[in-house]
Design a protein around this nucleic acid. Structure first.
Length: 374
DNA sequence: GCGTGAATAT
DNA sequence: AATATTCACG
């Protein structure tokens, strides 16, 4: 009996050390929580588990503790199983959501297919981790001590920006998130100390997806062009949830700026791609942006074309793509014809268009989306 | 509110 | 490097 007790104490002590080690590692991983969310989860769960067992086994059987005391042989296998299930569910979720989004994106370029998928899964991961919808997750406020995710963002209710079905699908993920958060909260180092520097909170960047930008252009058309339309008008016309005047203003500013002086800085990359532009109601847009066909490559001239021309200007972004090849005349009063614009997100579901960037990777991949490949 | 430029962040 | 946000000023 005494022997048993001493073994128990020994095991408990080792378990405690193990927990300490785990917690230290967790603190280290915490820095990379964006890159290693599952890893963090794993460690957190291990800690939890050991803690639970160290308390339970105090009254229960003595031998159960050996699970924790054996650091190297990894006898806490259930954790691994949990990890696997999490991973599985998450990947399947991603795929489903991707499909969903694929449908939303009317113009789907098969050439970018794999890239798109990567991109989407990439940013979806981020969205899952960073833009947790609050109705499903009351504890959302405690989600991830991300220094860049400010209380302001949280209070804005980012669920607006997420597709509804996506919310549903990611619910499983969130449950594990909640678990993790609870355990994180009891970690004293998580909140305090080192990573508290960014007090000047910034709004999370808004990514102007092609859809959103299309909406923006559509609004511009209806309102009489980029030099006539005002941010407020545009915002009201776009009817996009959560879109602020400032954001529209900023976007408009950039848009004007970039169409005033198109990307001359990039003369002609050796791989001189010919960019097809379409004049749509006085706006120069890449043909692919408004061709209804699935494939935008080659000389696909769909019925919507008014005039086509080519330019050797290499475009680098959404604004550049919109820039007219010859010198534009501003302000001018074009007769904007709204009917030409293919507004895929027509009217009703504004939420689907909006997405928040969570990582630079997203912005860059999104950018690729704008660029037309011929 | 709007337009713009600059600083700053991502 | 590109793009978004924020601020200041008129």
């Amino acid at each position: 009996m005494i022997k048993k007790l001493s073994i128990m104490d020994y095991n408990r002590e080792r378990c405690g050390q193990y927990i300490e080690a785990l917690e230290e590692e967790r603190r280290k991983i915490l820095v990379f929580q964006r890159e290693l969310p599952l890893c963090l989860d794993l460690v957190t769960q291990s800690i939890e588990r050991c803690k639970r067992e160290i308390t339970e086994t105090g009254t229960d059987n003595v031998y159960g503790q050996s699970e924790c005391s054996e650091q190297t042989t990894g006898q806490c296998t259930p954790v691994l199983e949990q990890f696997l299930t999490i991973k599985d569910s998450s990947t399947s979720n991603e795929e489903e959501v991707e499909e969903e989004l694929e449908d939303e994106q009317g113009n789907h370029d098969p050439e970018n297919d794999s890239e798109d998928k990567n991109m989407k899964s990439d940013w979806l991961k981020s969205v899952q981790l960073w833009n947790q919808p609050d109705p499903l997750l009351p504890k959302e406020v405690t989600i991830l001590e991300n220094p860049y995710r400010t209380s302001r963002q949280i209070s804005r209710g980012q669920s607006k920006y997420l597709h509804f079905e996506f919310q549903e699908q990611s619910q499983q993920m969130m449950e594990t998130e909640v678990k993790r958060d609870e355990s994180m909260r009891e970690d004293p180092m998580a909140n305090s100390g080192e990573r508290r520097r960014r007090e000047t909170e910034r709004k999370q960047r808004r990514c102007w997806s092609s859809q959103l930008h299309r909406r923006f252009l559509n609004a511009l058309q209806h309102l009489g062009g980029p030099h006539v339309a005002t941010p407020k008008q545009i915002r009201e016309f776009m009817k996009v949830d959560g879109l602020t005047n400032d954001e529209v203003k900023s976007h408009l500013q950039k848009y004007r700026l970039n169409r005033r002086r198109p990307s001359q800085t990039v003369p002609n990359n050796g791989n001189s791609q010919k960019q097809h532009f379409v004049v749509v109601g006085g706006l120069w847009v890449p043909q692919s942006d408004y061709s209804t066909g699935k494939t935008t490559r080659g000389a696909s001239t769909s019925g919507t074309t008014t005039t086509t021309t080519t330019t050797t200007t290499t475009t680098t972004g959404i604004y550049g793509a919109m820039a007219p090849p010859p010198a534009p005349q501003w302000p001018s009063h074009f007769n904007f014809t709204p009917s030409i614009i293919v507004d895929e997100g027509s009217g009703s579901h504004s939420e689907e268009v909006v997405v928040r960037c969570s990582s630079p990777a997203m912005s860059s991949s999104t950018r690729n989306y704008y660029v037309t490949k011929n």
